[in-house]
Nucleic acid binder design. Sequence first.
DNA 1: GTCTATATAATGATAGAC
DNA 2: GTCTATCATTATATAGAC
Lengths: 224, 224
Amino acid sequence: MSTTHEDLTGRARLRDAAIECFAARGFGESLRAIATRAGVSAGLVRHHFGSKEELRAECDATVLKRYRVLKVDSMNTPPTRLFAQLPASRDGGVLMVYILRSVQDGSPAGRTFVDNMVAEALAFTTDAVARGLVVPSRNEEARARFMVQQSIGSMLVNLAMRPEVRLDDFANVMDQYMAQAMLPTLEVYTEGVFADRTYLDEYLAYLAAKTNPPAGLAGEAAMS
Amino acid sequence: MSTTHEDLTGRARLRDAAIECFAARGFGESLRAIATRAGVSAGLVRHHFGSKEELRAECDATVLKRYRVLKVDSMNTPPTRLFAQLPASRDGGVLMVYILRSVQDGSPAGRTFVDNMVAEALAFTTDAVARGLVVPSRNEEARARFMVQQSIGSMLVNLAMRPEVRLDDFANVMDQYMAQAMLPTLEVYTEGVFADRTYLDEYLAYLAAKTNPPAGLAGEAAMS
DNA sequence: GTCTATATAATGATAGAC
DNA sequence: GTCTATCATTATATAGAC
């Protein structure tokens, strides 16, 4: 992982091995497999962390911390290049896949990751709307959450469809996803999908009728 | 499930109980829990199905079959209403959540479901493009796959973020998702996200340069 | 700090009675 | 067709030696 040498303490090696094992095969991965990868015995997990749960908590915290660093670094990248090489490094791939596993797993850590990204996305789009780069939404918070769910979700589906993720394959996982998703993403976000406004306008009318009932009847089944 | 009465054979009750348990809590759910819900003993699973794996295979096949029926039925719904009430029924919710669990699980069944939906989506968009309802894509197959991954994925993330899915809560799960996702979906698909074509055009130029190198240099890192 | 060996709990598989 | 009882496997938790 991010420390390139092998001169790590047993505790840190165990933690980094766990991060990679969890990312590669999910949180069901056994302590024995993790210990084997770290080159130590399984009993050492208890000595250093107490339990698998606590080991995982430390992995979660470490990944979140490293992800924040990676994000700040990527802020220095000019926005035009943003689409050519998001994960690029193997380390970045490990972090992203670990986060996807957390979401897949449905753990509180996954929720934390998602909530974090929603907050980031909302800040980003709010600013971008103000600068005229992104079109405004009728509900910015809902759009930000939805777009994060879509982005994370499509990556997650892509990941889940793979037969396996080899431990030396993390960079490829994200690269291959980007290669197939970039064009459709940019098309949809730039040109939309529907050729006219019919569906949107109908739904807006439906919402308006529901919120403000047409004086007389119950507001259900109002739409067409 | 779809047979409303309780006068089912033990085999069918076991299968339907398994579908609901798998949908509610994933495929890790124990045979004992499934048998309890079906009101029979765990040993009966072996007698009827042989193994958990074979029970699950039958659940997969049953869900896929019922999903196809539900899909055909929904074809008779006028397209304008399509957005007001997709899952509506509890049975439809069970099927959808079961499918999401299959994708989450990463099993071959999940892949089958996704591939099915991609094929449907491609047929639908191809037709809709021809009729002028949907804007064309530079790669219809890639867009169809991507949009399915996004749709399934956002529902899956939404599902995974829930603390639990109660067995009597399947209709709500999908309804609540629709309530929060409908407006952003229609906005993005109708109005797009980016205010101008810069990102798309840059990426298209990058692709063109990669495919058809600018006479002289290696085609890497060509983009800005 | 690290290892080996064991205890405990859960689950799927299996056999046999009714 | 259905149930009870038991076995085998696996994984984590734990204790104690070096």
